[in-house]
Simulated assay, not measured.
Amino acid sequence: MSLGQALMQNAPFWAVIFAAVALLAIGAVASSLRNARRAEAFLRARPAPADR
């Protein structure tokens, strides 16, 4: 049995793994964008202290 045949025999497993990693990546991007907006709002509400 070749490597390709072995991988294709387990194709559903690899598809599930790929889908799980894709969902995690989408969640990470969405979380980063959400946190960036929240951080911007937080910093706008609290301006930096004036230089001494």
Rank of each mutant, 00 (worst) to 15 (best):
L24I: 05
F42D: 15
A19C: 12
A36L: 14
R34Q: 12
R38I: 14
A15H: 04
Q9D: 12
V16F: 05
F18L: 09
R38Y: 07
A25Q: 13
L3A: 09
A11E: 11
E40C: 07
A15Q: 08
P12M: 08
P47L: 00
I26L: 13
R38H: 07
V21R: 07
G4E: 15
L3T: 10
S2Y: 08
L43N: 12
A11N: 06
G4L: 14
P49G: 02
L3F: 10
Q5F: 10
S2K: 06
V21N: 06
W14S: 11
R38C: 05
A6G: 00
A50L: 15
M1V: 11
A11G: 02
V29E: 01
F18Y: 09
W14T: 01
V21S: 14
A39Y: 04
M8V: 04
L23S: 02
A20K: 04
V16R: 09
A39P: 03
G27D: 03
N35K: 04
M8G: 03
E40A: 15
A41T: 09
G27L: 04
M8K: 06
F42P: 04
A11Q: 08
I17C: 14
A20R: 03
A30S: 12
Q5N: 11
V16T: 12
E40P: 02
A36R: 13
P47C: 02
W14L: 14
S31T: 15
I26P: 00
A19F: 01
R37S: 12
A25S: 13
G27H: 03
L3R: 12
A22R: 00
S2C: 10
A41L: 14
M1I: 11
A20P: 02
G27Y: 03
A41Y: 02
A11T: 04
L33E: 07
A48E: 05
S32D: 09
F18V: 01
V29I: 13
L7G: 03
F42E: 13
L7A: 07
A28H: 04
A15V: 01
W14R: 01
R34L: 15
R44Q: 15
A30D: 00
G4T: 05
S2D: 15
F13T: 11
L7R: 05
R46I: 14
R52V: 03
A20L: 07
A45I: 07
P12E: 10
A25E: 09
A41Q: 14
R38S: 08
E40R: 15
S2V: 06
V29F: 04
A22D: 04
V16L: 10
R38D: 12
L24V: 05
R37Q: 08
Q5D: 07
N35A: 04
V16N: 08
A25K: 06
F42Y: 15
D51C: 03
A20S: 06
I17L: 15
D51Y: 10
M1F: 11
I17H: 09
A22V: 03
F42T: 08
A6E: 02
A20M: 02
S2H: 10
V29Y: 03
R34T: 15
M8N: 13
A22P: 00
A45R: 10
A28V: 07
A6K: 09
A50S: 13
I17P: 00
R37P: 01
A45C: 07
V16Q: 11
P49F: 03
M8H: 10
M1Q: 07
V29A: 09
A22K: 06
A36P: 02
S31M: 10
A45G: 06
A45S: 15
V29R: 03
A30Q: 07
R52G: 00
R34F: 14
